[in-house]
Design a protein around this nucleic acid. Structure first.
Lengths: 164, 164
DNA sequence: CAAAAGTGTGGTATGATTCCAAATAGTTTG
DNA sequence: CAAACTATTTGGAATCATACCACACTTTTG
């Protein structure tokens, strides 16, 4: 019964895939990471691929030992994979979160720019508080703005936005 | 020369007054206090007059010893006066800051409510990040909204808003 | 392959926040 | 008015996020 076998296969495959998805696309509340860790993930997404911990430390202006430690935290929580002395890479989960974080930043910056703040002001302002804004709020703001694709400090990708 | 004397008097008085004003109306950036301390000041303003540290601890759901310690910090920085075992009162400076904090909360809540968040959602959301939003941003947002006097969670007083 | 450069580990520090236990002050009541 | 009760403060210690330094270990380079 190759028919059945292949059906079983495809079911296990589906289950496997969907648990992977559940893993990487787990509910994002937006509040799971501290401000600094959000910065780390956003930077990792921007750099893409394998990033040295020293790139991070020079970008974020912290001691290399600090970035190593923080990366280890992020690794323990499954956001990145870290191969000592070689580099850091976002996991699927890390990438999903990082994309949300970038979107959140861009949506909030765009929102503030509508109230008379310059791009730089909006961006700087948002950088200070973005990590305390929930995904559900962002989804609503994004929807109310008509799901814009361009913000004052970068493009906005959609796909994670749960809103009409 | 009574003329001169009175002129001297009036000058010292002016200097005195203006230094008092400088003291209580010193530049508010909006970023000088931690989230919890902002909550303390907002509560003190709401309660008005002499407030017991235990009122604070029950309102903010912390141990009484915690509120005492925090109040002592605020007292050291000149935001409140604390007479042990009797109560806490905002200083002029503390009142000025507290009024700004309440306004900031209300303006941000009103802003978010314009993007489809309910009053409760907006208020809760804002509570999480308000202490990281600068006065200069608030002034701009306030101006862009036409200096509204009513928000979703309270009245908005103007007078501290440096914006057209 | 040895020196230089890059990266990680261990230890320690700060600031914000917290609680618990014990001490002290204020209030109530017999 | 003093004991008993309640309210408040103090001292000590913990947690979490963040950070740096000094030292150790890798990797790269000449």
């Amino acid at each position: 019964m190759p028919k059945i076998d292949s059906k079983v296969d495809s079911i296990s495959k589906e289950l496997y895939t969907s648990s992977l998805l559940l893993d990487s696309m787990q509910e994002i509340t937006g509040l799971e990471l501290s401000p600094k860790k959000v910065e780390y993930l956003k930077f990792l997404l921007k750099k893409g691929d394998l990033v040295k911990t020293t790139d991070i430390s020079s970008e974020l202006k912290v001691d290399p030992s600090t970035s190593t430690k923080t990366i280890n935290d992020l690794s323990d929580s499954g956001y990145v994979n870290h191969v000592p002395y070689r580099g850091v890479r976002l996991t699927e989960k890390g990438r999903a979160f990082a994309e949300f974080f970038v979107n959140r930043h861009n949506i909030l910056s765009l929102m503030l720019s509508h109230y008379g703040l310059s791009s730089e002001e909006a961006c700087a302002e948002v950088s200070r508080f973005e990590s305390f804004v929930s995904k559900s709020a962002i989804d609503k703001v994004c929807g109310a703005m008509g799901h814009p694709t361009v913000s004052v400090c970068g493009r906005i990708k959609h796909g994670s936005c749960n809103s009409l």
